[in-house]
Computed example of a mutant assay.
Amino acid sequence: MFRLWGKLWKDNRLIKDTVICDDSKDSRTHKIFRGLEEICYEFDLENPIWLDNVISDFKRHSRARFYQDSFIEQITFDYLEIQVIEED
């Protein structure tokens, strides 16, 4: 079971969260991208852009934060955070 936790933060408070589960046999990368798409769909957001600093943080910590610079449209929260909480 692969689980990805998505969280919206504003003023150091968690305002919305969800967990996406994936039992498919796809690669970890595909599961992450698909999970992020599902999180963004549930939160009614556009998909963020993976900037170099986001990619390096995710590789090191299995956690990434998407700030305003990762979104084309204006956001009403401080950042979107995704975190891998369970892997096969």
Rank of each mutant, 00 (worst) to 15 (best):
residue 2 F to S: 03
residue 4 L to S: 02
residue 4 L to C: 12
residue 5 W to K: 11
residue 5 W to T: 02
residue 6 G to V: 00
residue 6 G to F: 00
residue 6 G to C: 01
residue 6 G to A: 02
residue 7 K to T: 04
residue 9 W to N: 01
residue 9 W to F: 14
residue 10 K to R: 14
residue 10 K to V: 05
residue 10 K to L: 13
residue 11 D to H: 04
residue 11 D to N: 09
residue 13 R to Q: 13
residue 13 R to M: 08
residue 13 R to V: 06
residue 14 L to V: 05
residue 16 K to I: 03
residue 16 K to P: 00
residue 16 K to F: 05
residue 21 C to R: 09
residue 23 D to F: 06
residue 25 K to L: 10
residue 26 D to K: 09
residue 29 T to C: 09
residue 29 T to W: 07
residue 31 K to V: 01
residue 32 I to T: 06
residue 33 F to L: 14
residue 35 G to L: 04
residue 37 E to N: 15
residue 37 E to F: 10
residue 37 E to Q: 15
residue 38 E to Y: 05
residue 38 E to F: 09
residue 39 I to N: 00
residue 40 C to A: 15
residue 44 D to T: 13
residue 44 D to H: 14
residue 45 L to H: 07
residue 46 E to Y: 02
residue 46 E to H: 12
residue 46 E to D: 13
residue 46 E to G: 12
residue 47 N to S: 13
residue 48 P to N: 01
residue 48 P to H: 05
residue 49 I to T: 12
residue 50 W to F: 12
residue 50 W to E: 01
residue 51 L to V: 08
residue 52 D to F: 04
residue 52 D to Y: 07
residue 52 D to H: 10
residue 53 N to D: 15
residue 53 N to C: 08
residue 54 V to T: 09
residue 54 V to M: 02
residue 55 I to Y: 13
residue 55 I to V: 14
residue 55 I to D: 13
residue 56 S to A: 11
residue 56 S to Q: 15
residue 57 D to W: 02
residue 58 F to N: 07
residue 58 F to R: 02
residue 58 F to I: 11
residue 60 R to G: 03
residue 61 H to M: 08
residue 63 R to G: 02
residue 63 R to L: 06
residue 66 F to G: 00
residue 69 D to M: 09
residue 69 D to Q: 14
residue 69 D to P: 03
residue 70 S to Y: 01
residue 71 F to Q: 04
residue 71 F to V: 04
residue 71 F to C: 08
residue 72 I to Q: 13
residue 73 E to Q: 15
residue 73 E to A: 14
residue 74 Q to L: 05
residue 74 Q to E: 13
residue 74 Q to Y: 05
residue 75 I to E: 06
residue 76 T to P: 06
residue 78 D to R: 03
residue 78 D to P: 03
residue 79 Y to P: 06
residue 79 Y to I: 04
residue 81 E to N: 09
residue 84 V to D: 03
residue 85 I to A: 09
residue 86 E to H: 10
residue 86 E to W: 09
residue 88 D to R: 15
residue 88 D to L: 08
